[in-house]
Design a protein around this nucleic acid. Structure first.
Lengths: 290, 290
DNA sequence: CATGATATCTGACTAAAGTCAGACATATGC
DNA sequence: GCATATGTCTGACTTTAGTCAGATATCATG
């Protein structure tokens, strides 16, 4: 009935009116939308005035006036940046935090209402994650993080859960050669998490060693972000980190049940090699010279 | 990592910026957004000025001025409504159609770019359909249509395809007791299609007869709209139509492979009865007195 | 055909958003 | 240290959006 382009456009119309409804309810707090948006950007942790201006695509004159109006309401305070006195840093005051929380409550309420009015919660959330990841692909950043950070542990938990689902014999981390965290922290190695607007979408570990090769471990991409080339980006980032650390040979192990992973490795210059460890789970082994 | 409300809000942020980008590219045609929106509403077939005003939630004064500005550009012409000279009808001129097409091209291009940049087209489209249907639930209208209309035939095609997928023995319309179209048109019966912003999301047929009962046939809800209560709304509309036509007893047949349907019938006052026809596909039979 | 309801339009506003040139202070590179 | 670049701010605008109180024409009803 509808061609793909029409379906995308139908989606656009539906969300446009939903977005408009949220804007309207923001107006209920008696402040123009522009000022409300700046206040919310600051509340969400954007303190650098230039950063906010870019994010909201505001003219510098307009931005300045919006800051002034928020200051007049005693909702924010601005100070000079410690390293560069030209730049200004904006922070919420107590009253500002209260007001920000009120906006948050409106947004949360709207989101909760949406979920409460639908029975297919999980399907809707999965669809929303997928679309948000697709729309935000170019803003997905790859950040080096400690493998013991919340974000990294979230990714690893999801990774293990997925292996348990996909391996016929299940998966128990303890039976696998679990790399120690310190081997995946500079200067020995690295751990990279793909973050999209606060949601971890994938990870990869580079495990340094004293042997003649280092290893890629724990490559995982969230279901909501598959098909967007994120696995490739993570691998590229891991290889880049390896080069920076002076690593010349990389190896990895995987299981033939993870077909996408095997395909990715073959397509990106990895060659299959014989088993090089006695981990019970993998049955496929690859190597790449940098 | 993220609770459901945060996931909805992440989605909101992602689509807000996407919607903003489209608005910005609309501005590229040198016309304020308000005027562009009115022009597009007319182009999409909304000719009644009051209807457009409601749709875009515009003040009547503002609306009037926007119409005037489009007339000054020779993009539209307005005439009085044939039956009610108070109401005005707006139509695109030649130049207006050209301009409308230019906006369409922008929207289509944006949608196409989005699809072209992602490999998971089908998954994305399915997610978009689901969300658009969920967001637009309250604007899904149930329209009585001829079962031979494009919309009805689309629904029936999808319905048969789904039966073929879900029945172990497949499904062949010719073997089933295909109700004749004229039995599902007033005054004998009715055929109702659920339309959401141009996309048919479901259907149901009320098949009149000369026997002591009439039948409900062809209840179908698009996968993108399941869990939104549409099946129930369709059934309610069919029963309402039956009452209007003076029908006292309704029957229907279904198959136990269609579990959702059976549940719906039981929950809405239908009682199971013995087989009342020799159609090879159904194995469950229901009746309801109105 | 008088009365009240309805649809649109006009005039007279206000508020919000956006633009642009220049001022000013501070940083960076030679 | 000087020229140049950068980040923010101010003043002086224009445009767009939105509001509200009538005016006007038409329709529906008894």
């Amino acid at each position: 009935m509808l061609d793909p382009v029409s379906r995308v456009r139908r989606f656009n119309r539906a969300v446009t009116s939903a977005v408009g409804a949220l804007d309207t309810s923001f107006l209920g707090r008696g402040r123009p939308l522009g000022a409300a948006r700046v206040l919310n950007a600051i509340g969400h942790g954007r303190t650098d005035v230039g950063d906010i201006r870019d994010y909201l695509a505001l003219d510098s004159g307009l931005m300045s006036r919006l800051l002034r109006s928020l200051e007049d309401e005693s909702l924010i305070e601005t100070t000079a940046h410690a390293d560069d006195a030209r730049r200004r840093i904006a922070k919420l005051t107590h009253a500002g935090k209260r007001e920000f929380n009120a906006y948050e409550a409106i947004s949360n309420r709207q989101a909760k209402d949406f979920l409460d009015h639908h029975t297919q919660r999980e399907a809707l959330l999965a669809a929303m994650d997928l679309i948000a990841s697709a729309l935000g692909r170019d803003v997905t950043s790859l950040d080096e993080m400690d493998p013991r950070s919340d974000e990294a542990r979230y990714c690893l938990g999801e990774y293990y859960a997925e292996l348990a689902r996909r391996f016929k014999q299940g998966f128990d981390v303890k039976l696998s050669r679990d790399p120690e965290a310190k081997d995946m922290v500079r200067p020995r190695g690295s751990f990279i998490v793909a973050m999209s607007d606060g949601l971890p979408l994938g990870c990869v570990g580079l495990k340094g060693s004293n042997s003649e090769f280092s290893e890629i471990k724990r490559l995982w991409v969230a279901p909501a972000a598959r098909g967007l080339g994120l696995g490739r980006r993570l691998m590229d980032a891991a290889e880049k980190a390896a080069r920076e650390l002076g690593i010349a040979v990389l190896r990895l192990d995987t299981n033939s049940a993870l077909a996408e992973a095997g395909q990715l490795y073959r397509r990106t210059g990895w060659t299959e090699i014989p088993r090089f460890n006695d981990d019970p789970y993998p049955d496929l082994f690859f190597e790449k010279h940098l």
